[in-house]
Design a protein around this nucleic acid. Structure first.
Lengths: 319, 319
DNA sequence: TTCAGTTATGAATACGTAACCATTTTATCA
DNA sequence: TGATAAAATGGTTACGTATTCATAACTGAA
């Protein structure tokens, strides 16, 4: 219609500087009239890029992932990338993994990796930039996390500092670096003092956390404070305690880790431990990932951010 | 490597029944050894499908969209679709719209349409299945919503029923069907009695809602109850009131609309109006959309679900 | 055996673009 | 004016798959 070759049309769209102005106009006019929209599949086939990033996130009802997903999607979109999202429970990891391998993407950002996950090796062989956030793999490569051990330590230590002596801990699977290190840090602060019966490792589902709380409430001496290994766990613990008509923090104090945005809400006011500058781990990770994609820098990303206490209203001062 | 043609490999992957068992095995073995992964771009190019659905959602910090996004993404994934997500504020609609037109997708699901949005016509011309949830367009086509007028009416009426006479309303832009109808319903219940000064239409941002609350608190006679036109607004209103050391519901009652999952949490216990069967609007919409995509049914979807009151703890009974 | 019918396989093509190389046109300068 | 360089354009191919059509290899009954 414009009387030019397909090659010239392609140039008009991609490198208009190489085409005479009058020709550009002819082509643009034809594009307008034909209501032409370039076929992205075909372009991607030949360029072997996808402008897509795969996000494997934890479930969205966990406010941590709500925060990170928003940050990741918005940033990636602003940089011109589409985001192919999957929300995945640890139980369904295999299925999600196999799907991700089939889909051509420019980069992969995931939170669900296990410490000894064999999938990590497959990822590396894919030769696609990828990064994990919140959790890391034993190979100690390509991750963004908070200092989980420090976080666990600060959480426990802060409770002790205000007089708590019977401190319980509700965590997650120790196959996950995050929970393993937070637990390690907490144990470090609690020392020998801590009793087995005050420790519960949940699978982070609501029912599992309920069982954990029930377990704690059955002890002859109730704990005066409970550490939730994540804000999500802590919030679920609080909810469960409230159902038992236990007041927070009057009867039992609760401490979280993550400093999720929700934690600062007036209705919540969760005392927690989080990133010093309140930066979003997801945002840091996606920034690094896009950097990796665009600058082909294959230097390995290892980011561990320092944390501090955010003192709010779910911890009672006993002294 | 398997000693067969590319055609046969294709058949092994798509219609293995048409291939001799021994050949299938040879090919699968080669696939294994070569670490072969089919190129999805190429397949999509020839099939002219994308197995992708575009989701244009409101911001994720709004718990309503957190609920719907999770439901939509999970359902679509389970049906084998990828989901290309965008979180978009009403202010940035144009930009998101233009991006969506460029991207090849099998279907579009969006919440952000305005009542008189000209984009709707462009969508129809695209000849791609699409559906709106939560909001609808004036053309009255392809939407899933709750009965917003009924919801507004029930919210106001329920407050009156327990003795409230000074009822305020914090809403959203009336260019949005959802807010327009909820407001209409509320007005209908409140009748002539309602004073202009108790009405505030925000743009649903936190700062705007703060201003609304400040406005209400400046009135000589304070309202005894506030209707938030959505749970998100209601929760922000509560947060703002708490910051002013106003107790809920002792000093002021608050009512929401949507019955977001968060509303049922012990820490929140928001009294609200929502879908009778507590079904997720996003889930209904994505189910319909995939139905449209796969069965080519072009019958227009018009779903308006009935609502009821969910009595919880943010409304005080005055009588 | 033979022949028709069936099953299994392969060769060639199309999908719509970007990239490469070749060619034509235009501009520049001696 | 001619030679040379530069700019503009076109022809062709490759990307990796599904599909169509043709062919080869079997099968079973006469």
């Amino acid at each position: 219609m414009a009387g030019v070759s397909q090659t010239t049309v392609s140039r008009v769209l991609n490198t208009p500087d190489l085409v005479k102005a009058t020709t550009v106009n002819k082509v643009l006019k034809a594009i307008e009239q034909l209501n032409y929209i370039p076929n992205e599949q075909a372009r991607l086939l030949v360029t072997s890029r996808t402008n897509t990033i795969a996000l494997l996130s934890g479930p969205l009802h966990n406010p941590f992932f709500s925060d990170t997903t928003a940050a990741i999607v918005n940033y990636a979109n602003s940089k011109g990338y589409k985001v192919d999202v999957q929300f995945v429970q640890d139980e369904e990891l295999e299925h999600a993994y196999s799907k991700i391998l089939e889909r051509k993407v420019d980069g992969i950002i995931l939170s669900c990796i296990l410490y000894e996950d064999p999938f990590f090796e497959r990822l590396k062989r894919l030769d696609i930039p990828f990064i994990t956030f919140n959790r890391k793999h034993q190979s100690n490569e390509n991750f963004v996390e908070i200092d989980n051990e420090q976080a666990g330590y600060i959480a426990a230590q802060a409770l002790q500092a205000v007089g708590h002596q019977h401190i319980a801990y509700v965590g997650g699977h120790l196959t996950v670096s995050t929970y393993a290190n937070r637990f390690k840090g907490a144990l470090c602060a609690l020392g020998e003092a801590v009793s087995e019966k005050y420790i519960y490792h949940s699978n982070t589902t609501r029912t599992s956390i309920s069982e954990g709380v029930d377990h704690l409430l059955q002890q002859s001496t109730l704990p005066t404070a409970i550490i939730g290994a994540s804000d999500s766990i802590a919030l679920n613990v609080i909810d469960e305690l409230l159902k038992h008509n236990i007041r927070i923090p009057e009867d039992i104090s609760v401490m979280g880790i993550d400093n999720v945005e929700l934690a600062a809400y007036e209705q919540i006011q969760l005392t927690t431990v989080g990133h010093e500058t309140e930066k979003n781990l997801g945002l840091i990770a996606i920034t690094e990932l896009i950097e990796m994609i665009e600058n082909k820098k294959n230097s390995c990303v290892r980011i561990t951010e320092s944390v501090k206490l955010f003192n709010r209203k779910t911890v009672k001062h006993l002294k």
